[in-house]
């Protein structure tokens, strides 16, 4: 079995299994915990929980005005690599085919050149994020191995994908295999580390927004 066959077959299968297991495990072990019921009387103008959660989710996309001076660039950079990753993952024709193979869904792709450009920007943005983590005393203090490893497994597919796309450094099948293996690593790690925030963000943003909005806090 060649490396590529291993990557396209067993590696991805194991990774997808690990991903599915981890996501189900973490979400259920969380959602099946007791939910506290807030017995305080909500303000009369409080929106429904769903509206509050949705509003809060959107609100936290961008820092409030007073925080903009300190957070603008960090937030921007965060958006750059999050949006960049989304564009790369969901825009490249090859990726759409991967997703189609798994779920049968497909949509029009973006020009490959654009996606390559976005990958470079994304990688640069991720590098900035890492540099900040390493340089900032605050981030250095609160960072754990999980943070660095999660960064690595996120950046690797972008880097290997760029190499594969540009046929740089090795034969294409090897590059593609590396890329797929790095994706497998990302998937396998995803639910077990901080990347799970992709799911948890809906819970935390939503719940805090519900808490605040029923108190009438416009924040």
């Amino acid at each position: 079995m060649s490396l590529l066959e291993f990557a396209r077959g067993p590696a991805l299968e194991i990774a997808l299994g690990a991903f599915a297991f981890g996501v189900a495990w973490r979400l259920l072990s969380l959602l099946a915990l007791p939910w506290s019921r807030d017995r305080s009387v909500a303000r009369p103008a409080a929106p429904s929980a769903l509206a509050a959660a949705a509003g809060g989710f959107v609100r936290r996309m961008w820092p409030a005005r007073p925080f903009r001076r300190s957070d603008l660039w960090v937030t921007l950079n965060g958006h750059v690599y999050h949006i960049g990753l989304a564009i790369v993952v969901f825009g490249l024709a090859q990726h759409i085919q991967f997703i189609k193979g798994l779920f049968g869904l497909q949509w029009p792709n973006l020009p490959t050149g654009l996606v390559s450009l976005v990958s470079v920007i994304t990688l640069a943005s991720l590098t900035v994020a890492l540099a900040r983590r390493v340089v900032s005393p605050v981030l250095r203090l609160i960072s754990t191995a999980n943070d660095y490893f999660s960064w690595l497994v996120t950046a690797l597919p972008v880097a290997t994908g760029l190499l594969a796309q540009s046929h740089l450094g090795a034969r294409y099948e090897t590059l593609l295999a590396w890329h797929l293996l790095s994706v497998a690593l990302l998937l396998a790690w995803f639910p077990y580390g901080k990347l799970m925030h992709a799911f948890l963000v809906f819970l935390t943003r939503g719940e805090t927004a519900i808490l605040y909005r029923r108190r009438g806090v416009q924040s």
Binding site: L30, P63, F67, V74, S136, L139, T144, H197, L200, L203
Partner: peptide, 11 residues
């Protein structure tokens, strides 16, 4: 959820 969701962004 709060405990598990922190991404250590330092904001």
């Amino acid at each position: 959820s709060y405990l598990e969701a922190c991404v250590h962004c330092g904001t």
